[in-house]
Design a protein around this nucleic acid. Sequence first.
DNA 1: CGAGTTTGACCAGCGC
DNA 2: GCGCTGGTCAAACTCG
Length: 360
Amino acid sequence: MQMNDGCQWRKYGQKIAKGNPCPRAYYRCTAAPSCPVRKQVQRCAEDMTILTTTYEGTHNHPLPMSATAMASTTSAAASMLLSGSSSSSGSGPSFSSGTIAVDLHGQNYYLPDSSRSKQFYLSNSSLSSSSPYPTITLDLTSSPSGASSHFSRFTASNYRPDIQKFAPTSLNFGSSESSNAMAPPWGNGFLATSGQSHSRNHPGTLNIGRPAMDQGNIYDQFCMQKINDHLAATTSQQTQLPADTIAAATKAITADPSFQSALAAALSSIIGTGAGGSANGAANLGGGNHLVPKWGPPVTNGFSSPPPPNGNPCASYFNKTTSSQPPASSKTIFVPLSLPFSTPSNAASASPADKNDRAN
DNA sequence: CGAGTTTGACCAGCGC
DNA sequence: GCGCTGGTCAAACTCG
């Protein structure tokens, strides 16, 4: 069991996806026996330091606070990213269009792109700043609040130390539960935590040094860490994201090309632009295809781009080689995709239990 | 000893 | 129809 995002996950498979040297790990939520939620964790080929996590399905059980917080964090980031990208990142994918409307408060994202419009609903939004890793979260899962309507959540958070400093995020943890359930042992300080998570594998080094599964854990841990950190630090102020925080986050995100690309990739894959991640996009989002038509190609490219000079950190990580190649700055991308987008059927199909598993 | 992880094999959808 | 790719299962292995 892993404590990634507040939920317990069990790895049930790993596979090397085409176009990405890094294996993709598959996890199932074990918080509840019948929970259909699955998670995919994969490293960005372009930047091994970036992890992309895709959530699929809807939890049929109450989420721990940490999980909620995590989701929140990512959502906010995503929103920021979206807005930021649209305005400032010209180089990136075609986020730019500027047609993207982001309503942080409402958490309602509108991407009336050229021909297709999509509504991004961020059920939770929070920016976690404690983690050294930039995190991109794409959550397409239907959230409880959105039960009535299917929505997806895109969340991206850029975890950067510097940013953290600037953005004392006050996260909306939405859950009254305290961090008890999720409180990770390492959840003390940012440094402490990160050190711990990493140290598990490679003491003293910042590399993710483990297979995808671990990666997932790690990034989750970071999130959790952040959360905890925030909780501790802002115990009393877990409320909404201050404009400042958002702005800072947006800035940070837009400033990081790799992050953008990673996010774009994640989004594209999730959304299932025609390009490549058809499986995810189509299956998960159902109508998700309409979401980000333009992003697809560019993003994909990014992923396909050759690995870092290091050689293939990914491979080594996944191979369990503890080769430590601590990326100067590790980045974690969370791509929580949730199924229930706009297609009810998605939920069903998404559910692993159903047809399952072997479907593909 | 139990829980979780790892890894290879199998299955099914999709594209050519 | 064939091959490719992605996703899942299940047995074996490892760690606590």
